[in-house]
Design a protein around this nucleic acid. Structure first.
Length: 430
RNA sequence: GCCGGGGUGGGGUAGGUGGUUAUCCUACGGGACUGUGGAUCCCGCGACUCGGGUUCGAAUCUCGGCCCCGGCCCCA
């Protein structure tokens, strides 16, 4: 019986793996340019780390188990909680802000569909202990920088601030439960549903109207002025709006302007405190969101000091989907460029010798180790995209020479064995 | 968790009113050729997703599982 791959998981073959590595290293480079350092946390954690953050209900959506010592453990479904946990133990007494990034796989027990897997990768960062419009602006700019360098087209960065909605809702004296429900509807962006929902709720009409207007507030920075005039009755909401204004000034200074102000972003989670942002790529269906982030207070929830953290995470697999959809192919380099082939089997050992000489000089080289015939070797080299084949034959070797065949145009050249590495290196340069 | 469409050699297809499945390309193995041979030609290899049911007989009909694709719910 054939053993299958677990549901919702993937094998990555050579080509795909190279593309993923390319994208990974691009993002990594940008993060480091902005002063972030990489960290890595375990694949599994105590189950309570995640239930504390997201509630007992989360158990339905994660892989959890007991180990042989009876500990309740879980495969991590995300990375912000592990990072917060690590911060409390390792970084509380480190000069602030602490800037870190991570890349790793996470696991969720959900029904797989397009852009959603049971094992998936997140590439994210945190700036801990330095909440300010400036750090938020820097982080958003960095996210955009990554996507630009990857050559992604048409991505939309939506920026909002939860403080505005939260404060308006707080002033209406409705229950927290109701507030959460309303936030959920607003996050969906469903104007009609919001209208119907508000109808049956005991709330003053001014606030109802305000909420309905805000959900549709979307556009460039000029809409802030409009919002200001709408909410002038609410002091706390105005403070949040001021934060947003400051953020936009900083973004301008960082030279980033390609954003959408969107006050309908709600990211229903309690621990988000102010600025939130999401990045969408049109054409990816229901999974169009490739990145989410904002400022939140998670550290205190886990028993640390009251320190706020700003961060975001790319859904790495969705970034790959978006790139693949837009580009015909992501540039990848063939790793092996030279193949050493004995013309007859009597030259087999000589071929090993020559191949190793090239490898020691840093030239990516393959050699026939299985005893294939020349015809097969050439065909194999051709299919592998090899640039040059070194033909090792007794006649040439007697004179201290080998034949180098250019696989693209078929031209051949007899060169000295003595300085073969240099000759091939200079050929590869051209 | 819910709804719909699927699963045929390693990859790509046809067949579907039950009766030895088949085909082309490709991949793989072997051969002709053996110091210019990446070509060509020949030979070979290899599959009906799994399990139960109906039947003399199931790739085909039926039920269930697994997996894939799309959508809903959800998305920390």
């Amino acid at each position: 019986m054939e053993i299958q791959r677990p549901r919702g998981t993937r094998d990555f073959l050579f080509k795909e793996m190279k593309e993923r590595k390319n994208v990974e290293s691009t993002i990594r480079q940008i993060f480091e340019i902005y002063g972030y350092n990489e960290i890595k946390t375990p694949i599994f954690e105590e189950l309570s780390l995640f239930t504390t953050k997201s509630g007992e209900g989360i158990k339905d959506q994660i892989y959890h188990f007991q180990d042989k010592g009876g500990r309740d453990l879980a495969l991590r479904p995300e990375l912000t909680a592990p990072v917060a946990r690590m911060y409390i133990k390792e970084f509380q007494k480190t000069p602030k802000p602490v800037k870190m990034y991570y890349f790793g796989s996470c696991f969720r027990y959900e029904r797989p569909q397009k852009g959603r897997w049971r094992q998936f990768w997140q590439f994210g960062c945190e700036l801990i202990g330095g909440k300010s419009p400036g750090s938020e602006a820097e982080i958003i700019t960095m996210a955009a920088h990554c996507l630009e360098d990857l050559g992604l087209q048409n991505f939309e960065i939506h920026i909002g601030n939860l403080g505005i909605l939260r404060n308006i809702l707080n002033d209406t004296n409705i229950s927290e439960d109701l507030q959460d429900q309303i936030m959920g509807i607003i996050d969906k962006g469903d104007v009609k549903e919001l209208k119907t929902f508000l109808k049956d709720i005991d709330m003053d009409n001014d606030s109802k109207e305000l909420l309905q207007k805000l959900i549709e507030m979307k556009g460039d920075s000029s809409i802030i002025k409009n919002v200001e005039s709408i909410i002038n009755c609410n002091k706390h909401a105005c403070n949040a709006l001021f934060e947003l204004e400051e953020l936009i000034k900083s973004l301008t200074a960082f030279g980033f302007s390609n954003y959408v102000v969107n006050l309908g972003i709600a990211r229903g989670l309690d621990y988000y405190t102010g600025t939130v942002f999401e990045i969408y790529v049109p054409g990816l269906g229901a999974q169009k969101q490739i990145c989410g982030g904002g400022t939140y207070n998670l550290i205190e929830l886990f028993g640390g000091e009251n320190v706020e953290s700003t961060g975001f995470a790319f859904g790495f697999d969705r970034v790959m989907d978006a790139l693949n959809k837009q580009k015909k192919s992501i540039e990848i380099e063939k790793s092996v460029k030279v193949f050493v082939a004995p013309i007859k089997s009597d030259m087999k050992l000589k071929a090993f010798e020559i191949a190793q000489k090239l490898r020691k000089k840093g030239i990516p080289t393959d050699v026939d180790v299985v005893g294939k015939k020349l015809k097969k070797i050439l065909s194999y080299a051709d299919s592998m995209g090899i640039n040059y084949v070194v033909l090792v034959g007794a006649r040439d070797i007697e004179k201290g020479k080998v034949t180098v065949k250019n696989m693209i145009n078929g031209e051949q050249e007899i060169i000295d064995l003595e300085n073969i590495a240099d000759s091939i290196k200079s050929k590869l340069m051209n």
